[in-house]
Design a protein around this nucleic acid. Structure first.
Ligand code: SF4
Ligand code: SF4
Lengths: 133, 133
DNA sequence: TATATTATAGATATTGTAAGTCTACGATTA
DNA sequence: TAATCGTAGACTTACAATATCTATAATATA
């Protein structure tokens, strides 16, 4: 069980955008170069972030992507959910008594993780990096 | 990102063994029937649990599997780790500054989940089921 | 001791999903 | 209108999970 590489790309892109001072859109070309990934593939991933309303896309010349929200609201969980989906880590084909205790327990555990990912903002990392440098 | 079906089988098998009153080993045949999975495949999974010292295997006639520890010590995390491995949910090829903040933050979150899975014992579920029935 | 029973290990096949590419299209700017 | 840039869908590739098959080793018991 692992987060996909796509999630990794998404996190790094979002971090890049949070760090960027400008309001101007940034092209996928530039975003892809900084991560050694093909632009077309990254584009596909970023479209998911657009649909999750985390970023806006601007077509045409001088277009690109930019944050659609306040930079200090962006947390890890929203990004991860945009890419990985929001289904539980534990699914079972037999929906036994729909009061399945195994599933309930694992969902509880998962929610502990999600709480932490929700309250951790990307901006926190940027601030921490500054302090360490 | 999902737990594998193998983990599902492992959890159910362990729950089965915890519920079983007997000390006698239970054959993979019987364990597989209760889950609609082929005995040879389940056997392969159970071998991982043996190597993780969660259960003991007894070869030969009247052989099978039985718990190797006290039934009320068995928690979710040990089983999951035995099957899925203990690597972090988030791996990155570039080991940048080995003080990577992204990885650190996700590991923190993961540890919250693990704490919960560690403190939740299978026996808790059995007790809860009894109370509900 | 011989036979039936049971787990183990390795080779192999199958399936499914992630990862990545390619191309035609639509939107925007200059 | 031409160059730029994101979108969408079909497609391929790569790889790990899932599963099967078979030979072998260990044990009980008749
Ligand atoms: S008990 Fe829960 S996890 Fe197990 S088979 Fe039933 S629904 Fe699935
Ligand atoms: S910052 Fe961390 S996660 Fe990102 S590439 Fe470097 S090591 Fe990997």
């Amino acid at each position: 069980m692992k987060f996909s590489k796509a999630t990794n790309y998404a996190l790094h892109t979002m971090l890049f955008l949070v760090k960027a001072e400008t309001d101007k859109p940034i092209g996928v070309q530039q975003l892809a170069e900084s991560q050694d990934v093909s632009p077309t593939y990254l584009s596909k991933i970023l479209t998911k972030l657009v649909k999750a309303r985390l970023i806006d896309s601007i077509s045409g010349a001088q277009g690109g992507y930019k944050l659609s929200r306040n930079r200090d609201e962006i947390n890890f969980l929203d990004i991860i959910h945009a890419i990985e989906g929001t289904a539980s880590l534990f699914e079972c084909d037999f929906h036994h008594n729909n009061g399945c205790l195994i599933q309930a327990e694992i969902k509880n555990a998962e929610e502990k993780m999600n709480e932490h990912l929700r309250k951790t903002k990307l901006i926190d990392l940027v601030k921490k990096e500054l302090r360490l440098s």
